[in-house]
C-alpha cells in the first residue's frame, strides 16, 4: 500500500465537512511544556498542582513513558505538541524529556484537528527554565514520586 500523506487523507475528511475546514497557521506561543496525562486526567490533583516545579519529576517520568507533552499557553490554551526541533518522531523523544515544565516561547504551526489544537514547533526562541515554582504551594506532586531517601538527602544538603 502506498504511503499516504495525512494531509491528503485530511482532504477527504475536509471534503466531508466543507464548511468546517481549517488550515494550519503560523503562531508564536509562550507557555509551559506540561505533562498532558496528569493535567487532563486529574489523577494527580488539580490542574495548578500538576504544572511547574511541583510536578517536574512525575512529568519527566510521563514524558519518558511516552505521554505527549502540551504547551500550556499564557492564554490558557493547551497545544498538543506533535514535534519539537531535534526530534524526528511525531511525539516523544529526548527533547521532550529535557524540556518538560520549562516555560518557553515557541514559533511553529498550529493545526486544528478533531477539536484539538496541535503544535509543530519550528523554533524555541526562548527558554526560561522552570520559573513556575509550584512546589512552594504544593510540595512534590505526587508525594511519592521521589524516594524519601532522596528527599531527605536533598534537605540535609540544604
Amino acid at each position: 500500500m502506498r504511503q499516504m500523506m495525512v494531509g491528503v487523507v485530511a482532504l477527504s475528511a475536509l471534503m466531508a465537512f466543507p464548511a468546517m475546514a481549517a488550515e494550519g497557521k503560523r503562531v508564536s506561543v509562550k507557555g509551559e511544556l506540561i505533562d498532558t496525562w496528569c493535567y487532563f486526567s486529574g489523577v494527580m490533583g488539580r490542574p495548578d498542582a500538576v504544572v511547574g516545579s511541583a510536578h517536574h519529576t512525575c512529568a519527566m517520568w510521563c514524558a519518558a513513558g511516552g505521554i505527549p507533552i502540551g504547551l500550556l499557553g499564557e492564554d490558557g490554551e493547551v497545544y498538543m505538541v506533535l514535534k519539537l526541533p531535534g526530534d524526528d518522531a511525531s511525539n516523544g523523544g529526548e527533547t521532550f524529556l529535557t524540556m518538560t515544565n520549562d516555560t518557553v516561547e515557541a514559533e511553529g504551526m498550529v493545526y486544528e484537528r478533531d477539536g484539538l489544537t496541535y503544535l509543530v514547533v519550528s523554533e524555541v526562541t526562548s527558554n526560561d527554565g522552570i520559573p513556575n515554582r509550584t512546589h512552594e504551594d504544593f510540595g512534590v506532586v505526587p508525594g511519592n514520586v521521589i524516594p524519601d531517601a532522596v528527599v531527605d538527602k536533598v534537605l540535609e544538603e540544604g
Binding site: 500500500m1 502506498r2 504511503q3 499516504m4 500523506m5 495525512v6 494531509g7 491528503v8 485530511a10 482532504l11 475528511a13 475536509l14 465537512f17 468546517m20 475546514a21 481549517a22 488550515e23 494550519g24 493535567y39 487532563f40 486529574g42 488539580r46 490542574p47 495548578d48 500550556l72 490558557g76 490554551e77 493547551v78 506533535l82 514535534k83 511525531s90 504551526m109 493545526y111 486544528e112 484537528r113 478533531d114 477539536g115 484539538l116 496541535y118 509543530v120
Partner: peptide, 29 residues
C-alpha cells in the same frame, strides 16, 4: 480550573475542523 473546564468543553465538541499535518504518517508493513 477554568482552563481545564474550557479545554474539556472544547474537547467535547463534535468533530469540526480538520487541518492537514505537515508530515507523512502511515505506510506499509
Amino acid at each position: 480550573m477554568r482552563r481545564l473546564v474550557t479545554l474539556l468543553a472544547c474537547a467535547a465538541t463534535p468533530v469540526v475542523a480538520q487541518a492537514p499535518l505537515p508530515f507523512d504518517i502511515g505506510g506499509s508493513f
